[in-house]
Structure formats: C-alpha cells, structure tokens
Design a protein around this nucleic acid. Structure first.
Length: 576
RNA sequence: GGACCCGUAGCUCAGCUGGAUAGAGCGUUGCCCUCCGAAGGCAAAGGUCGCGCGUUCGAAUCGCGCCGGGUCCGCCA
C-alpha cells in the first residue's frame, strides 16, 4: 500500500534533510517536527516548523537552519519550491505531478481512502447507556451521535472498535420502573391504583403514557394474579418484562438514528454472576481497598451528615481528589463498585483502551473512574463529556424529565427533521461545548442545516459523473492546474491526516467541519465553471481535460462519501 | 468551599494539541443563472479572542489569579 498520508511522506523528507544538517537530535525533539497545511496559498502547500524546533539544540539560528533545509528539500523531485519564511518556517510547494498523483490513489482506494492500516489495537467505545426506563429523549441524542461517529472515526483510523451500551438494570431506577408498570397493570385490570401508589416511597416515578401498553399486556398475560399480592411476588417478573420492553424501545430509537451497537452489557447479569466481588478483588489484592471515614464536602455539608466508616478505594493514589466509597454504610455495594466491575470486565475482554461518552452531569465521576481503570490494568480510559443540550422552544427552555413524562422524545425529533440533519447538527459542535437546540428552528430551518450543503456537493458531483464517461485512475492529469482545482486537491489529500488527528483527539466534530470545507471548495470550483466556460467539467471537444476533471470530481465524491460514512450521514445521489 | 467544562464577529460556533495577516455559517449590504443542479458562488461590513500577570523566538491556544455562565460534590444510578 502506498503512503496515503502525503503529510507523513513529506515530513519524512523534512526529517531526512534535518538529519543531514543536525544529526543526533533527540527523538522527543524530532517528534515535535510537524508538516502542516498552510493557511494561505501564498505560503505553498505545506509548511514545517522543523528549523524552529531544532535550532536551539543544533546551535544555529532558525533562519540559518531553515535555509539549509530549503537547499536540500529543493533538490527533491517531489518539491517544486521550498523557501524559508517568517521566524524560520520552511514553506513547501509540491510538484504538481506529485500532488496530482494522489488522485489515482483516491480513485483506487475508493471509500477506503483515509482508512489506516490495522494497528492491532482494540478499543471499546461505550455510549448512550441510558437507563432502560423509557424511550430516548433529545437529551440523549448528542451522546448517541458523538459516540457512534467517534467509534466510526477510530475504526477509520485503524483501531478495532467495539460499540457498547451498558444497561443499568440492577438498581433502584429499574425497581421504580417495575412499580410504575405495576400501577398501569392495576389500571388495566380496572382497579384504582391510588391506594397502592400511596404505599410506594417515591410514588409513581415514571408517569409517562408509554407504560400503559405494558400494564395492559401484563394484565392480559396474568389476569389479576398479582393484584393484591406483596411486591416480592411480582417485582422481578415485572422489572425484567419492563426492562426488556424499554430496551427494545431504546434500540428502535437508536436504529432510527442509524446507531447500531455491537454489545449490550447488563449490569444485572454482571452482578448476578458475582462479577462485582471478582472485579474488586484485583484492587483488594493490591491493598487499594480499606475501611475509613470520609471528610464531609467543604462548604456544603449535608444536614444529616455524620462520620461513617465505609469501604473506600484509594483513588487518590491514581490522581483523584479523595478516596471513593465502594460500599454503603449497610455494606451493600455502591454504583461505583458495580462500575469498577463493569470496567474490569471490559478490560478483560481484551481492550487496549476504553472510551466512555458521558453526559456532562457525570463529569464528577471521570477522575475516579480513570483512577479505577488505571488501578485495574494498563489500559487507559478516556472520557468524552457531552455538555447538556438545552432544548429551547420559542425561546423558552424545555424541561425534560422522564419521570414526569414531559420530555421531548428523540423519535419525534428524528421523524420531524430526519436522522441526517440530527446527526450532522450534533456534530457541528465540539462535544464539550454547551449547546442550545431550538426545536422550532430545527424543524423550520431544515434547508439551512449545513448537512444539506455537504449533501448537495455530493449530489452535484454525482450528477456530473452520471453525465460523463466513467472516471479512469490511469488518466493523464496534467490538464489540472486552475487555482480552484488545486485548492480542491489540497483539501482532498488532507483527509487521511484529518482522520488521524481527529481520532487521536477523540473529536468527531472535526470531520463535520472538514466536510463542510471540502464541499465549499467543490462549490467554488463549480461556480468558477459558471463564470468561465473553459473550467467546466465536461468539455465536448476536449476529452483530455474532461477526463482529468472527471477524475477530480470522482475523487471529491469519494472523499465526501468516506467522510459522511464516518458521521453516519447518507450521501444522497440527488436532492431535487 | 472544592472539582471539571465553557467564555472568540450582532447571533450560533470553528481555530488542525504553541506558529505567519484570527475563520465559517446565519443575519446585514451589493453583485452572479442564454452555460454540467442557484439547497450554489463572489464581494463588502463586522474583533481590546472575558480581564490581568507570567512562561518564550512566538500565546486565542500553556501556567497562575480574578470576573461571568454551566455541570457536579458520602449512604442515587
């Protein structure tokens, strides 16, 4: 396989030249040498900071070193022009033939362009993991989209990726779900549930109408068998039934968004298999669990605070601020203990790295979870936090509460604006930036959504290709050279580099911005053809030019598809 | 009181892990369809990058301190 990432290749040239001028530079120093796209075409195609990085230890000033690099790099056939600039940049203009030679590479690779070779490393990306107590609401969709796109991105970057959903089916929430379903069951039997509701400590916690059919179904199935019986007789049965149904609901919602996870891990199954004690044993063996008393949180002492001895995990040894309880005062495990066990399980399944996509309301748990994973294994846990999406309707924030049944269901949103627009707009922002989502605007402004801008570029490209002879990877490309054409090519060859960098930063939004820029370059070229007929893609009397331009258009469509696939957005053929 | 995230154009947001003159979309103003798809393009206007020190060849980016917004802080998950 030829080197697809041209920046990596050129960086190799720079390092070769640097080694002649300043041998024996430390590897840490060389690692900081970059070859980057230039912001301004006047600076050429690529620029390197090599001279500025190496100057000090090489005992030369940056400009002097840059001049030496320029001399050596200019001699290479791949480089048309090299010059020193500014404080010591080396600006490189690539030989057109070298740049153009990437077009056949793209055409042959097709949608696999930008796909890095397998690294032999397995990553686990866990996302959504909503409580199985109801359908997904719009607050969930950011994490769902970001997690899914990130997983795709990492796969593109050469990692073996497992997409995972953690089912919180073991705690008080799902017990409350079972009780709420029980209420619907009583109603379905024609009984007044009020007397029962009064006996439940938290009352009717999940009052949404979506549980009504479950109650009816249970009434049909069991008649009044459980109507007057103690909770112990029915709660397991009702809970399992309800959790199963809610999970089906969630999976349907995810499917509507185009999200399909590989693994659904049940907390309950883990607990019942004794996984918690097993997971904690690793920590006990290392003496990282002890009995102790925590200080009250400063400035916000709960009124009923009293010192209690608890089992604690020495999270402070791994960078956390305080040690964290793994058992409640009554001896039962905390959620954190279950989470430790779950992460131990994920690591044992052979993952080289774990990534959790969490809502910002879990920000306070990042350090302790990272500490636990560090203590459990050599694997690293990265947490991508998604800030809460504030849903606005007519300028008013919409309160979302699953318990009150007042949330806006994700499904409604998808049905209204379509999965592509939902996904793309969630990815047009950095995930840790706060975000307002105006429902009215999302519905009304579908045409203004940037996703259509990108899809339109693809549809335009495909429309040209339908009217032209098929693209040929062996075509003569010398006819290409207009500024708009070269700008587009420069953008295309940046795709492999972008995949790598976005994956490393765990930032799928960069893909969305890249595609927007690429679409912009393509639209600009298109309109150049409207201004100047000689720049049109298809010229009846000029088969050589036409063939070269068709190759460029085909390459553009390929990269657009390649990127949209990462985002999970449909590359439409036409948008009429 | 503490932890984490955010503060960039009127609005919504990027800014490639420290680089050259800080960008895009929307909105405003003015242009471009006898021509492959105008859901497009070109141009103009719009900035003390929250404030102040510091680190160095160089800071929107890194460190510290303030100011403002958000999320969270044992026996919920």
């Amino acid at each position: 396989m030829s080197e697809e990432n041209l920046y990596t290749a050129v960086r190799g040239f720079v390092l070769d030249a640097l080694a002649e001028l300043a041998p024996d530079l430390a590897p840490e120093l060389l690692a900081r040498v970059e070859v980057t796209p230039t912001k301004d075409v006047a600076h050429g195609d690529m620029a390197s900071n090599a001279a500025m990085i190496a100057a000090k230890t090489a005992g030369k000033n940056p400009r002097e070193l840059a001049a030496g690099l320029v001399e050596r790099l200019s001699a290479r056939p791949e480089i048309a022009k090299a010059e020193a600039a500014g404080p010591g940049f080396v600006n490189l203009t690539l030989a057109p033939s070298y740049l153009l030679a990437q077009l056949p590479v793209i055409l042959r690779a097709a949608e696999a362009y930008g796909q890095r070779q397998a690294r032999g490393l397995k990553l686990n990306v866990e996302y959504v993991s909503a409580n199985p107590t109801g359908p997904l609401h719009v607050g969930h969709c950011r994490g769902a989209v970001v997690g899914d796109a990130l997983a795709n991105l990492l796969a593109k970057a050469g990692f073996e990726v497992t997409k995972e959903f953690y089912i919180n089916d073991a705690g008080a929430q799902v017990a409350a779900l079972a009780r709420s379903v029980y209420v619907r069951y009583l109603e379905a039997l024609g009984l007044d549930p009020q007397a029962y509701i009064d006996t439940v400590p938290g009352g009717m916690q999940y009052g949404g109408a979506y549980l009504v059919p479950l109650g009816e179904e249970l009434a049909k199935l069991h008649g009044d068998e459980f109507a007057e019986t103690p909770e112990a007789n029915w709660i397991d049965r009702f809970r399992d039934f309800a959790v199963g149904r809610m999970l089906d609901l969630i999976k349907e919602d995810l499917a509507a968004l185009g999200v399909r996870q590989h693994v659904f891990s049940s907390e309950r199954a883990l607990v019942e298999a004794g996984g918690v004690a097993r997971g904690l044993q690793t920590l006990r063996d290392q003496g990282l669990i002890y009995r102790g008393v925590l200080e009250p949180p400063k400035g916000k002492t709960p009124e009923d605070w009293e010192p209690r001895e608890q089992e604690l995990f020495r999270a402070t040894q791994f960078g956390d601020d305080v040690d964290r309880p793994i058992a409640k005062s009554d001896g039962s495990y905390t959620y954190f203990a279950n989470d430790i066990a779950y992460h131990a399980d994920k690591v044992m399944r052979g993952r080289d790295g774990l990534i959790n996509v969490w809502g910002a309301d879990h920000g306070g748990y990042v350090k302790r979870m990272q500490a636990a994973v560090k203590a459990l294994s050599g694997a690293k846990l990265d947490v991508v936090l998604c800030q809460i999406v504030r849903v606005m309707k007519n300028g008013e924030p919409v309160r979302m509460s699953k318990r009150a049944g007042t949330f806006v269901e994700l499904r409604d949103l998808i049905d209204e604006v379509g999965p592509d627009a939902v996904r793309f707009s969630m990815l047009m922002r950095k995930s840790d930036a706060q975000m307002e989502f105006d429902l009215a605007a999302a519905v009304a402004q579908t045409r203004e959504n940037p996703v259509f801008y990108v899809q339109y570029a693809h549809a335009r490209a495909r429309s040209v290709l339908r009217a032209a002879p098929p693209p040929d990877a062996n075509v003569n490309l010398v006819a290409l050279g207009a500024p708009e054409e070269m700008a587009l090519i420069r953008r295309l060859i940046t795709w492999p580099r972008l995949v790598e960098q976005a994956a490393e930063a765990r930032e799928p939004h960069r893909v969305a911005f890249y595609l927007h820029d690429l679409a912009s370059d393509f639209h600009a070229l298109w309109n150049a053809g409207r201004e100047n007929a000689q720049l049109r893609f298809i010229l009846e009397d000029k088969p050589v030019e036409t063939a070269a331009r068709i190759a460029l258009v085909a390459a553009t469509a390929i990269v657009l598809r390649s990127g949209l696939a990462v985002l999970g957005v449909t590359p439409v053929e036409e948008m009429r």
